[in-house]
Every structure is written in structure tokens, then in C-alpha cells.
């Protein structure tokens, strides 16, 4: 464990918590893409499938973190599609999730480190996570704005994988560890946030709201 990965995981936890708090406190999921949250839930379930296969006691923080990610993302989807369904902005959340899921699944079958079920599910989860934020960014471009709290959520969500890139550099250098598929997908994922990062740094930090076109 290194500082980059620690802060990356904390940033990821913060993003999940910020979004949950936003929806719970405002009792509304306006401006939130339900499809992105569904895709994240699929990512966690397919990546941490080992939790369901051979359940071992919660003997370490990693198992607890995996359970937190899965339960929090499923609960978020429940809030969006059931509890606060009336506030779900389905018209603007119109990016076709199939256009993300099918290529990720196909690519996972073509490019992977081992052709076995668990490994392909893990690879699918990594590829899907790289593009899972697109429906959310698409929704913001359709509505033309993002609530400040949603911007904080996106900043934390984007920072998590950006910090993981630093973690991978650290591990390559000091532990001579490399996970090529995760690194390539993580770089693609972080690049997708660049435009948002620019808007966040130049606007939200100064107390302004993100309004598109910038």
C-alpha cells in the first residue's frame, strides 16, 4: 500500500459518500446519471465476484472496502430508480449504455491476461469502469450545467483513478509491479475527465457554477 493508492481509495469513498449524501439530503437525483451509477454497480459486482464465490470472514479492510463499494453503489441505484424515481432526469440521461457495455465485454474477451471466467469478468469490469462516467458527462452536456455538489462528486471520482496512475508509477518503480490492462484503462478513464477537471479548477474552485458551453 502506498500513499497514492491510499488517497485514491479515500477519494473514491468520498465520491460515493458525496453522491449518496447529495441524493439523500436533497431527496433528489436531479443532475445525476442513473446509467453511470448502474454501470459502476456492475463494475463492482463483476470485479469483486470472489466475495460471493468463496466468502471468507471480513478479516481485512480490503474485503470490507469491496462490500462497502458494492452495497453503496447498489443503494445509490435504489435511491435513483426507486425511492427518488420522480426526480430522475431520464430524458437527459439518454446515452445508450449498451454502446459501452457491449464493446467492453467484447474487448474483455479479446484482450485479457488469462481466458478464464473470473479474469474476463475482472477485465470487463476494468474496461467498463473506464467509460462508465460517460453517461454522466453526457447528461451534464445535455442539461448545460452541473450542481456544485455534483461537481465535487465528479472531481473526487476522477481524482481516484488519477491517483491510481501515480500508484502504478510508484509500484512500477519500487515494486517492479505492473498491471498493463488496469494502467491503460485507467489512463483512458482519467483523460475523459480532463475537460471537466479544467472547468472544475477554473470555475468551481472560485465558487462559480459549471455552466456549458463554457
Amino acid at each position: 500500500m502506498n500513499i497514492f493508492r491510499l488517497f485514491g481509495d479515500l477519494s473514491h469513498l468520498a465520491a460515493i459518500a458525496i453522491l449518496l449524501l447529495k441524493i439523500w439530503k436533497t431527496r433528489s437525483c436531479a443532475g445525476v446519471s442513473g446509467k453511470t451509477q448502474l454501470l459502476f454497480a456492475v463494475c463492482f459486482i463483476t470485479r469483486y465476484i470472489d466475495l460471493f464465490l468463496h466468502f471468507v470472514s471480513l478479516y481485512n479492510t480490503e474485503k470490507v472496502m469491496k462490500l462497502i463499494y458494492i452495497s453503496a453503489s447498489v443503494f445509490t441505484c435504489y435511491l435513483i430508480f426507486f425511492k427518488f424515481k420522480a426526480t430522475y432526469d431520464g430524458n437527459h440521461d439518454s446515452m445508450r449504455a449498451e454502446f459501452l457495455i457491449v464493446p467492453a465485454a467484447g474487448l474483455a474477451c479479446l484482450i485479457n491476461t488469462k481466458f478464464d471466467a473470473i479474469e474476463i469478468l475482472w477485465t470487463f469490469s476494468i474496461y467498463l469502469e473506464a467509460v462508465a462516467i460517460l453517461p454522466q458527462l453526457f447528461l451534464i452536456s445535455k442539461t448545460g450545467e452541473a450542481e456544485t455538489i455534483t461537481s465535487h462528486y465528479l472531481f473526487a471520482q476522477g481524482s481516484y483513478r488519477a491517483l491510481y496512475i501515480l500508484n502504478w508509477i510508484y509500484r512500477y518503480h519500487y515494486e517492479s509491479h505492473v498491471d498493463t490492462i488496469a494502467i491503460v484503462a485507467g489512463v483512458v478513464q482519467t483523460i475523459l475527465y480532463c475537460d471537466f477537471f479544467y472547468l472544475y479548477i477554473t470555475k468551481v474552485v472560485k465558487g462559480q457554477k459549471i455552466v456549458l458551453p463554457a
Partner: peptide
């Protein structure tokens, strides 16, 4: 050379 060991990250 760096080794491609298992996936030990979240």
C-alpha cells in the same frame, strides 16, 4: 523487468 502479478488492487 516488472512482473505482471495478480490483481491486488480495488
Amino acid at each position: 523487468p516488472p512482473t505482471q502479478s495478480g490483481h491486488d488492487e480495488l
